[in-house]
Design a protein around this nucleic acid. Sequence first.
DNA 1: TAAACTTTGTTTATCCACTAGACAAACAAA
DNA 2: TTTGTTTGTCTAGTGGATAAACAAAGTTTA
Lengths: 398, 398
Amino acid sequence: MKKSKTWNQHVVKKENKSLVLGTIRTHSPISRADIASLTGLNKGTVSSLVSELLEEQLIYESGPGESNGGRRPVMLLFNQQAGFSIGIDLGVNYLLGVLTDLEGNICYEKLVKFKDLSYEEMEVKLVEVVDNLMENTPSSYYGIIGIGIGVPGTVSKSGEIQLAPNLGWKNVDLKTIMEVKYNLPVVIENEANAGAYGEKKFGAGKSFNHIIYVSVGIGIGVGLILNGHLYRGNHGFSGELGHMTIESGGRKCRCGNEGCWELYASEQALVKNAEKIAFPSLPKDELSLENLLTLAEAGDLEAIHLFKQTGDYLGIGINNIINIFNPEQVIIGNRMAFAEDWLTEPLKDRMVKQTLWYQQQDLQINFSELSTHSSALGVAAFSVENFFMSDMKKSNVI
Amino acid sequence: MKKSKTWNQHVVKKENKSLVLGTIRTHSPISRADIASLTGLNKGTVSSLVSELLEEQLIYESGPGESNGGRRPVMLLFNQQAGFSIGIDLGVNYLLGVLTDLEGNICYEKLVKFKDLSYEEMEVKLVEVVDNLMENTPSSYYGIIGIGIGVPGTVSKSGEIQLAPNLGWKNVDLKTIMEVKYNLPVVIENEANAGAYGEKKFGAGKSFNHIIYVSVGIGIGVGLILNGHLYRGNHGFSGELGHMTIESGGRKCRCGNEGCWELYASEQALVKNAEKIAFPSLPKDELSLENLLTLAEAGDLEAIHLFKQTGDYLGIGINNIINIFNPEQVIIGNRMAFAEDWLTEPLKDRMVKQTLWYQQQDLQINFSELSTHSSALGVAAFSVENFFMSDMKKSNVI
DNA sequence: TAAACTTTGTTTATCCACTAGACAAACAAA
DNA sequence: TTTGTTTGTCTAGTGGATAAACAAAGTTTA
């Protein structure tokens, strides 16, 4: 017999406790009285919930605050060091691990670079990084509350990595492997989804609820924040906008399609286009985003033209995104964001000319604020969110 | 002082009542005992909530049901005739009004056709249709519970029609006009959004939660059902996929862009392509979807080719949709759905060849089941939904 | 046919979380 | 010193859910 969630006083208490904790998290430091007037809860209710949160070490009392004309309030603070979260950005040729507190502040980080690793070698490196982060974790009440891993590929809702073409992985159940090894909750998420969440929590998207995060690296992936929540699609495979056709009958793509966006606007496309040009100071086998950026910064017109061309093609896809989603904000992230200076102009040109007028109200086009850290911070934040999420909300997941 | 919603026993009761009513709506006829075991609520709780619902005339008791080896249960039924809803599909050259009961069954309908009406003339027609529907409403406890209107244009979240190019309307606050005139809740919604909702509630999408409804008429509009809910975007302008670029540097569109999808795959595109061909039996000024369909049915190869071409272009856009949203189902609706027989094959060809393999798990491509009625039924259902939605959920709107 | 068992729906006693309001402590201003 | 305000706790009361008892209305078994 299928039982749906009913509503009773236990739920009420849990939700209110979560509400109080959330208020302290965002308004810290704050007094009991202010929580009551902010949430609308009764003073007595707040008092009793606060005392439970104190016992659970999730908050702590600091000394008395400023008087407002009467008795001085006892200020409550969120105990951001009650536990720590591990976030890993697993790239094709690097591993970035961060250790954050419960507010997303980076306490320690570890970057490892390498080339052409097999899956087994990669797993060894991954374990090394996680172990290293754990060794450097300060002692705390809850310890490590979870491990998050961002990967450049599609991840099913159950957490299995279905296909990561640039890693050469297929159907890898890294989640179970890590959960068994560390006996901790593990979250695996697509790199673009993680980046989108990272930027929403800590970066350029903090104050927005309808965000499209475009991760432009070797390929193009997109993370969708709709109504403030990450949208994963039916099986978790949404956001494959890199394979959106922008030129019917255009270049062939390995996905089987033609004219895919990432064939025109990604790092790979940029390098391919550069190969057709003879740069006196740059041999063909040393063409890379970094080297082309250096050239552009030195004023090389051909390099600058290449970036502008990429920006133009980026604009086409972003125009589509705007027509499809009517977002508040589009964030361009990952490595291509380093080229902000040359991408902005052709991008804006496309926007102004081509987007239906009414779409442009309150529309922001921004570049990543967290740069290379957005993915790792995003997956770390997933674990924190799961740690705090009440069971009710977990079942009503959006 | 901003007060967020708190949780107390009143909320609990409201939600549980809503849960019980919902269970009766979907499982009618059902006994109190079965409601209790289905929802997990206590038998006593169910009894008391049911007696309130009976007083409110939202449900009624029928005679005793079959015994299960003990006392015979009293069967409860949803009172679908406790009120009625009006839904209007406002087209460029027609007005379709339906009167539905609370379960979406059509009790009466009225279709009016016309040509080249000004806004004022259209408003007169609209009022005539609504009045006509009201006169034909059976008497009931709650009477007409709301009016919904679907329009071919963009509608802001506040309900204002921002731009309806094919009607020639701009910034029309039809919602307020109608609310003042009839003193009833009025919902204005984009035609594609309404159609999507209609198909989800009553048509091809009944058992799915991630549905992309593609309304192919004069232009192309798209309604997005994500996680079971209509997604409207930041200002309510999402779903303008008709203006997604599928051919960079392609034909100029009135939206300012180039290579828009609807320039290749809509009814308008079909007719324009037909103009280049000499049909012996069809003069150029009589080219229309209907006439071309007749030709195709008669076996005219050129007409069939035109439809297949349209299907191919539809496939390009739908491929994009699949990569973007990873939906469970794509529904093709509106007038072009009449050409199902010739569209299916080229569409499937595009799917099979070009969509990343893992996306095709559990993916349905279907044609509208409600045909010309999906929009009208959709907006009528919006009013019903608002009528039943608990205040809690209203504030937590997704 | 009678006795025993089942199912259904109501009633009763109890529990639990929130609220309102009283209250004491701590402070500012007159 | 007096008065008034703010803060946080405490107490009594309210409302809704639950568990368990119970009555009513069946079926099954001996």
